[in-house]
Design a protein around this nucleic acid. Structure first.
Length: 955
RNA sequence: GGGUGGUUAGCUCAGUUGGGAGAGCAUCGCCCUUACAAGGCGAGGGUCACUGGUUCGAGCCCAGUACCACCCA
């Protein structure tokens, strides 16, 4: 073995061997256990969040596989409609100067498939680097034939059940991408802006109570006034009560509009009068419906002003009335139109005031432009009926959120769920299975032939398929069952559905988790007709942020690539990577500067296992996880520690008799205290570790493994084997070798789910020593996960070794604080040894002398005169190290005083407690006894320390 | 405006039904000891955000305040 752990040398080869041998496939035996991967974008690349979640999924999968389950981790990708289309459009523009319209729909889609072929491998390669034990033969893609079939089937069935409908409604329109987006894809940002107060002249000579011939409306969007069809006042507002039902002449366009009474108008806010633009504001749209106000659309698809308003009645039916827009506005962008409207109001003397105002502005999360509410024809899923069973499943505990608090988030959203706009004006995605005749009638079916047959349409009737595609999340919502072959009732579906746990970030609980629950429960039923949940547990991870707690994003230039954590990257490459494809030169400069500062020497290679262990160790219940390179480094060191500990074990066991090759006779073995102790300690570790994994506390599981490996196995046990291996007899050596191999082999299996590569590599050398038959299963990943065995816990050995540790630490303490070299052998005297101490002393001479580097240990009888010494205590027993020539008086006095002070502080607190009557009368007896015992112990210790101090003082 | 989460050592974070404040990293001292200097041994470091309450006893339970983050309108 190399002296230092070198992950690069082992990882990829190992993965390939696992994969080609088919070890990731379900075994076909045992209780099924399945996890469906949240499909990443097919043309995307892995970020830290993926690495985090994939680590957890792989850990669970490997853990369950080793426990004998029939384990499937289903892998696949989604087509990421808008994101992918945008990438290809940009590429097309950059390389050929063309738009998708230049190519046409079919040719453009071919280009996307080309791009998918070219870049689609990135993410799967990265998954492999992480060690993901997914069954690649079952890889699925949301746009492949089977899943497209499922999408179509779901659409048609939902439509038949009246759960999908088409309607002209106000949607979030992205004027840059020219598509509707769902409200979840809208990012609301707080902005500073203005509130414009306009005078709207009253018609027919009507005057307000205070004698004005106008009322004042306030707006943050002046340009929409071109489409106003009403003004609302509160029905209880005394100021305007007489004006209800009267009209206003809308300036600039000269249209006559009505004043209506509506609760929406807030008397406290502004003037209490609100202009109503039902075609361009969600609230106004509601008001418009209540008062049957017409709607006038004034924007085209680019959110520029039309030449003529498009007019609709309140219920979305087209109606013909004239809604002219002055020519000077034609084709103006909404923001230019805003300026012009304001200046015209000013010129007309109708601009009353401009106030500063902070407002929330909706932005498209993909395009970054301001979203425009626009009247368009879209397809919707009627969510209310679907939400009921989905809510119930969570309320009844059929689906559990971990951590539990996310249930609130889910419930809050589900209780106020809106219909889901599923159509997108894109080319990349599942084309909506709906056809139109020239009369505008719409027919939904699996294909055109079915549509004709079902509706008795003449063969020569012209039909055109809907141009739009479905929201990517629509297909993702079917993921758990569409990947298993639905709508066929396949064996896979029966075996692996419902899946066990969904591992995902809280940011997509609404986008995906809730919708998946709704869709799955609607379509997948048990044999007795009971709806099946898609998964029993939703494990919600935190979001990985950068070292300053900022969200990682390309535009901030603080993104970390998990592969760079594994392989390392030099500073120049990192800077290039972070600053390429940025819109602004200025931003690039800034990113370069901070990158150079944060990663002065680039990033070192740490290996997959260290990365995985770090991610697991950070997986606590919090919502944010700040990435910390120092921790990654710490866990790389941990890998190295494990590596070297194994090296020590192998050096001392290979080519030796380890007591395993029994062939009939039992070789003589006499196990040391340390052997018995570490075996018990390991059992505890197995128990705790498994409990933590079962409870999805990967941070605690990782800590447990770390603590045992480093602080018990390496720091104590390996050191304790040295005296035996160097000086013990054959039976003792054999027993210790046996224990070394046993514990290491078990430890490797324990940690394999977290750190697959290093454990497999070492295990390959250790397994033969432990006489494990590897002919059937030549990989650690197919071995059994360690199980807790109470019979291997020797409580006396645990207590005895604890005593040994205290003894050794006592001596080390004196050395440390007195600056005595660890190499200098010391003579120790023992005072006040009780029979139990005496037994332990005799039994463990070798350990004590070896690890505390003692030349001699002499037990003093009561009559013996003790030399002037530095003292350490184990219970009531005192360990004395003679000071002569080693320790100066002042130093030992200082040390004693420090100890006395420390104990005194504790003592006072305990005394206070015990002298408090209400404590003694009300606290449980066990607690009181504990306190009393503590008090006695401290008093005894203090007495001895005082005695020591007196002795030294007397010099 | 409504809601959720957070505030514990210099940094990143654990802290189970309320009963002696923990880890890793960083810092300081000693050591190249025959697995490991990516190491060993030892040490220092905390008003558990603040105020009040419940309790014999509060980092933990309750109420309020401040600040930070996120979600929703």
């Amino acid at each position: 073995m190399e002296k230092t752990f070198n992950p690069q040398a082992i990882e990829q080869e190992l993965y390939q061997s696992w994969e080609t041998k088919g070890y990731f496939k379900p075994s076909g035996q045992g209780t099924p256990y399945s996890i469906m991967i949240p499909p990443p974008n097919v043309t995307g690349s892995l970020h830290m969040g993926h690495a985090f979640q994939d680590t957890i999924m792989d850990t669970l999968t490997r853990y369950k596989r080793m426990q004998g389950n029939n384990t499937l981790w289903q892998v696949g990708t989604d087509h990421a409609g808008i994101a992918t289309q945008m990438v290809v459009e940009r590429k097309l523009a950059a390389e050929e100067g063309k738009t998708r319209h230049d190519l046409g729909r079919d040719a453009f889609i071919d280009r996307i498939w080309d791009w998918k072929k070219e870049s689609g491998g990135t993410i799967t390669k990265q998954l492999r680097r992480l060690g993901a034990s997914v069954d690649w033969d079952r890889e699925r893609f949301t746009m492949d034939d089977g899943l497209s079939e499922a999408v179509k089937e779901v659409f048609v069935r939902l439509h038949k059940e009246d759960l999908i409908y088409r309607g002209k409604r106000l949607v979030n329109w992205d004027p840059k991408l020219h598509t509707a987006i769902s409200d979840l894809e809208v990012e609301n940002k707080d902005k500073k802006g203005f509130m414009w107060n306009f005078r709207y002249p009253l018609a027919d000579g009507v005057k307000t109570k205070d004698g004005k011939d106008y009322i004042v409306v306030a707006t943050t969007r002046p340009e929409t006034m071109l489409g106003d069809t009403g003004v609302a006042v509160n029905p209880e507002d005394e100021r305007y009560i007489d004006l209800i039902g009267k009209d206003i002449i809308l300036p600039i366009v000269g249209r006559r509009i009505a004043i209506v009474a509506d609760e929406h108008a807030d008397m406290e806010k502004g003037t209490g009068c609100v202009k109503i633009t039902p075609a361009h504001d969600f609230n106004d749209n509601e008001v418009g419906k209540r008062h049957q106000l017409d709607m006038i659309n004034i924007f085209d698809k680019d959110a520029a002003i039309l030449t003529q308003g498009e007019t609709y009645s309140f219920n979305g039916k087209e109606i013909a009335f004239d809604a002219p827009i002055p020519e000077r506005f034609h084709g103006l962008d909404r923001f230019a139109a805003r300026k012009l409207v304001v200046s015209e109001f000013d010129d007309l003397g109708l601009l009353e005031e401009i106030e500063d105002h902070s407002l929330t502005v909706p932005y498209g999360d993909r395009s970054g432009v301001v979203i425009e509410p626009l009247l368009t024809d879209q397809w919707y899923v009627r969510t209310a009926p679907l939400a009921e069973p989905a809510k119930k499943a969570v309320a009844d505990g059929e689906i559990q959120f971990v951590p539990k608090q996310y249930e609130n988030m889910y419930n809050a959203w589900m209780n106020d769920i809106q219909d889901w706009c599923i159509s997108r004006q894109l080319w990349w995605g599942h084309r909506i299975p709906a056809w139109y005749d020239n009369e505008g009638n719409v027919y939904v079916g699996r294909d055109e032939a079915e549509v004709r047959a079902e509706n008795n349409l003449a063969a020569d009737l012209e039909l055109k398929q809907d141009e739009d595609v479905l929201d990517t999340w629509f297909s993702s919502a079917l993921w758990t069952f569409s990947t298993q072959g639905w709508p066929e009732n396949t064996d896979d579906l029966k075996t692996f559905h419902p899946s066990e746990v969904l591992v995902t970030g809280f940011d997509i609980i609404f986008f995906w988790v809730a919708r998946m629950i709704m869709m799955t429960m609607h379509f997948i039923k048990d044999e007795d007709g009971k709806p099946q949940v898609p998964f029993k547990t939703v494990y919600v991870t935190g979001l990985i942020r950068d070292e300053n707690g900022d969200k990682m994003s390309k535009s901030k230039g603080n993104v970390l690539d998990p592969i760079d954590m594994i392989d390392g990257i030099d500073l120049e490459s990192l800077v290039t990577k972070r600053t390429s494809n940025l819109m602004q030169e200025k931003v690039a400069k800034k990113i370069e500067k901070t990158t150079r500062k944060t990663f002065e020497k680039g990033i070192e290679a740490h290996g997959t296992d260290a990365l995985r262990f770090t991610l697991a160790a950070m997986a606590s219940t919090g919502r944010d996880i700040n990435w910390d390179m120092n921790r990654l480094e710490g866990y790389r060191n941990f890998c190295n520690k494990l590596w070297n500990a194994s090296r020590y074990v192998l050096m001392n066991t290979e080519e030796h008799d380890c007591g395993f090759n029994t062939d009939g006779h039992t070789p003589e073995m006499s196990f040391s205290l340390a052997d018995r102790w570490i075996l018990g300690q390991f059992q505890h570790t197995v128990k705790t570790f498994s409990e933590h994994v079962d409870n999805y506390r990967f941070d605690l599981a990782a800590n447990t493994a770390y603590e045992f490996t480093w602080n018990q196995f390496c720091d104590w046990y390996l050191e304790l084997t040295k005296p035996v291996l160097f000086k013990g007899d054959e039976a003792q050596q054999r027993a210790t070798r046996h224990t070394l191999v046993t514990v290491l082999e078990g430890l490797l299996r324990l940690m394999h789910p977290l750190m697959p590569y290093i454990t497999e590599t070492i295990w390959q050398s250790v397994a033969p020593l432990a006489a494990i038959d590897t002919t059937k299963a030549d990989s650690i990943m197919l071995q059994a996960f360690p199980e807790f065995d109470a019979s291997k816990v020797d409580e006396l050995a645990m207590a005895d070794l604890d005593w040994v540790k205290q003894f050794i630490v006592g001596i080390r303490n004196i050395r440390g604080e007195m600056d005595i070299s660890p190499n200098k052998p010391l003579n120790a005297f023992i005072k006040n040894a009780e029979p139990e101490d005496a037994r332990r002393l005799t039994a463990n001479q070798q350990f004590l002398q070896g690890l505390a580097k003692l030349e001699s240990i002499n037990v003093l009888t009561a009559s013996d005169e003790a030399p002037v010494s530095a003292t350490a205590m184990v219970g009531n027993m005192e360990i004395l190290i003679p000071m002569a020539g080693l320790i100066d008086v002042e130093a030992e006095l200082a040390r004693l005083n420090k100890n006395i002070e420390k104990i005194n502080k504790d003592l006072q607190r305990v005394q206070g407690k015990l002298s408090n009557d209400s404590f003694v009368s009300k606290a449980p007896p066990a607690v009181i006894e504990k306190e009393q015992a503590k008090l006695a112990e401290m008093e005894a210790a203090l007495a001895k320390l005082a005695e020591q101090k007196a002795t030294i003082n007397a010099l």
